[in-house]
Write a protein that binds this DNA or RNA. Structure first.
Length: 706
RNA sequence: UGCGGGAUAGGAUAAUGCAGUCCACGGGGCUCAUAUCCCCGAGGUCCAGGUUCGACUCCUGGUCCCGCAACCA
């Protein structure tokens, strides 16, 4: 089943996944917001009426827990992030027509309205579920804050998903031997009444829905597998007080699951947009109402495909709303070939990028044209430099500048002749490529259509050598430059969705007024104004030494983050792969297949060393941490006091034999929490095998190592 | 022994019937242009089978890589 190509005569809405109001934005997030923004802009250049809406995702356990940790109420906490996001988006030329949040009145009312409809239509039933409860902390433990044993495959699993074993989605109460992630306490199950949505009844509907769904293939294929395995009904409520109340249950300590109200923000935000600009300008009902048939396009990360292709369309159908036309799931971003990790600081933060002084359009171009939407894209500063210097500076910028400068010097603007038909056809071809790119949900094709047209421009000017023709054949020279100016303008129009600022700069240089964002693709063929001023350079080259610095800074910051927890929390995950099936491997092993890390070349000062407070200690208690494969909780006597630390040594050491052992402890390590257990120091150990360091003589407990 | 994604030239990235594009590399050219641009060249489908007139593409088996604990799209 295929939909009518864009543009259609119905309004469209484009959304990106809602930013979760719980932390700073990095380029992984930005990829989504930028892609959706570019897609929305591209739709508009095709002549499609379209709005780009989004909002902050305010609810859920992590927000509640982190707010509590900071001693503020969840709303204040989440709003702080919300404000920060709103400031950040424009700095990347991400322009929402409306940006709300899930806790605002519009979304609250709409969510309750939709849930009420689901209930009234008979799609909701009540059922008693066993909810994990931490008796020590007097705390009900929702989904993510429980871990235990998967009832299906027996693997260790998270409360909402068997992440290490069979990958199944787990409903509350399913997991066996639950423990609290927050305190490590064993949890008990208590019976609570919760609301369930009959998703299982929608299997046929969803199969048809997926058959007609546009976007990326992963967004169609993954949920199909889910449907084949059999859909489970979906628990709509959680034992919490932060969130939107289940309609009619306002008095109870139960709220809607965050994934119920989050996607509804797409509708609520569209509605707010209409309320602001008026229904004549943009009518949300024409998009979202069941029979209106507006074009709904969700651009999301690939980790939330299930929510957008199973629960969400089922909910929309049940509540009698229109369902999405397209779901495009972006791949992830890797940094220097490795997975992005916020905890290890392997990330490029939005703020950092801006502080380096790079123009947002450079990143927009890089992220949208380096790989297909669905592909994982690797970010390196070197690749970024190549892309910018090669394509934006060398191809596009250079073509713009050489054409316009030549035109300005010789004709004070656009030569007064008609564009040649060859060039017109070539531009039409590029317009066609953009149109096809949008309909394929390929921003890469959109961006590259502009670059290829500029490349054609370079070839064209090179072949015709107008600098020779000005004397020999002035008419022909004027023709060539006229063509080049037209190509330059066309490149600007085509590039606008990807690089709006830069396209606008070009637009103004050729003497156009107004905004290039309002231009349609066909305007690429309209003649530019007769005269314009002397052009300037629009893109700036990134120098090699700059890139070296950036790469170094990045490495240092990752190294700094991993040193923090190297021998405690993080390193055992690496040790894991190496020692998995090699139990006979505990003996020192320095044979050929073990690679030693090269020695650090950066020297540190004596003062730096003095900053490390390293003490002699004795392990007094050593016990495993439930649920962790390799983490042990140790109590270490360092003379002055006894410290609790967490160390990744369970797999390689016989914990029972450890008490009484001397060890070396980095005492002024900043505290960390691992598997809910506070670690207040770091036991030093050598290598992947976590060979514990000890003393050779009889140093007293608490003596400083120097 | 799980789940998902992937393997195309030195690197990256396309292709459902001629393996294309960008960077880097070798050679040449231009001077309007930001040492930018243009032309030419060399160089590639992970392995083993199978289907086919034809396989990067489909099938079978294998190898290798990546992501999948902790609030990381």
């Amino acid at each position: 089943m295929s939909s009518e190509d864009f543009p259609t005569d119905r309004p469209a809405v484009v959304t990106c996944g809602l930013p979760y109001a719980n932390g700073d934005l990095h380029i992984g997030h930005l990829r989504g917001y930028i892609s959706a923004d570019a897609f929305n802009r591209a739709l508009k250049t095709l002549g499609q009426q379209s709005a780009y809406v989004c909002g902050s995702d305010m609810h859920g356990t992590p927000v509640a827990v982190n707010a509590e940790a900071e001693g503020v109420d969840p709303e204040t906490f989440a709003l702080r992030w919300h404000d920060q996001y709103q400031e950040t988006f424009p700095q990347f030329n991400v322009e929402f027509d409306n940006y709300g949040h899930t806790h605002d009145d519009t979304n609250t009312a709409l969510t309750q309205d939709i849930v009420r409809t689901l209930d009234e239509e008979g799609y909701v039933y009540e059922d008693a579920v066993l909810v994990a409860y931490d008796p020590t902390a007097d705390d009900y433990l929702p989904d993510r804050y429980v871990e235990g044993t998967c009832p299906y495959c027996g693997a260790h699993a998270r409360g909402d998903e068997c992440d290490e074993g069979c990958q199944r989605h787990l409903e509350p109460g399913e997991i066996e031997n639950p423990t609290s992630v927050r305190t490590g306490n064993p949890a008990e199950y208590r019976e609570r009444t919760h609301k369930f949505f009959r998703v299982s009844e929608f299997a046929d509907f969803l199969t048809d829905f997926l058959d007609g769904l546009e976007g990326t293939s992963n967004a169609r294929n993954q949920p199909r597998q889910w449907i084949e395995e059999g859909l489970q009904d979906w628990c709509l409520t959680r034992d919490m007080d932060w969130g939107i109340d289940y309609p009619g249950s306002e008095d109870e300590d139960i709220v809607l699951y965050v994934w119920v109200d989050a996607p509804i923000e797409y509708i609520a935000s569209t509605k707010q947009y209409t309320e602001r600009v008026g229904a004549e300008a943009y009518d949300w009902a024409e998009v979202w109402q069941h029979d209106a048939g507006g074009e709904i396009v969700h651009i999301i990360g690939r980790d939330i495909i299930q929510h957008h292709t199973i629960f969400w369309p089922a909910m929309l159908e049940a509540a009698d709303y229109n369902t999405p036309r397209g779901v495009a799931a972006t791949g992830f971003i890797t940094i220097d070939g490795k997975g992005l990790s916020t905890s290890r600081n392997r990330a490029i933060w939005a703020k950092e990028y801006l502080e380096e002084g790079f123009h947002p359009d450079l990143l927009r171009y890089y992220l949208t044209t380096t790989g297909g939407l669905q592909q994982d894209v690797d970010f390196t500063w070197t690749a970024f430099q190549e892309k910018v210097n090669g394509e934006l500076v060398g191809t596009i910028g250079n073509f713009w500048y050489r054409s316009l400068l030549f035109a300005y010097r010789n004709y004070e603007g656009t030569p007064d002749v008609a564009v040649s038909s060859d060039v017109e056809e070539r531009i039409e071809g590029a317009i066609g490529a953009v149109r096809a790119g949008v309909n394929d949900y390929s921003l890469r094709d959109v961006g590259l259509a502009a670059t290829r047209l500029a490349q054609f421009g370079n070839e064209y000017i090179q072949q015709h050598e107008p600098w020779k023709l000005t004397d020999e054949d002035p008419e022909q020279a004027a023709q060539v430059i006229r063509d080049c100016v037209q190509i330059a303008k066309a490149v600007g129009v085509l590039l606008e969705p990807i690089a709006p600022d830069k396209a606008q700069a070009l637009w103004e240089q050729i003497g156009e007024t107004g905004s290039v964002a309002d231009a349609h693709l066909e305007d690429a063929l309209e003649a530019p104004p007769r005269t314009f001023d002397e052009p300037g350079e629009i893109f700036e080259k990134i120098e090699d030494d700059r890139v070296e610095e950036l790469e170094e800074t990045l490495e240092e910051k990752i190294a700094a983050a991993s040193e923090d927890d190297e021998d405690e929390g993080a390193s055992e995950s690496e040790a894991e792969t190496e020692t998995d099936d090699t139990a006979d491997d505990e003996a020192p092993r320095m044979d050929d297949d073990t690679e030693l890390e090269p020695l650090a070349t950066d020297r540190i000062s004596f003062d730096d060393f003095q900053d490390l407070d390293i003490r002699v200690g004795e392990i007094v208690v050593a016990e495993g941490i439930d649920g962790a494969d390799d983490l042990a909780r140790l109590e270490v006597d360092i003379g002055l006091e006894t410290r609790q630390v967490v160390a990744g040594i369970k797999r390689l050491h016989d914990l029972e034999s450890l008490p009484g052992t001397r060890c070396i402890l980095l005492a002024n390590m900043e505290p960390a929490e691992l598997f809910g257990v506070e670690s207040n120091g770091m036991v030093l150990a050598a290598g992947e095998a976590a060979d514990l360091l000890t003393t050779h003589g009889d140093a007293g407990l608490g003596e400083k190592v120097r």
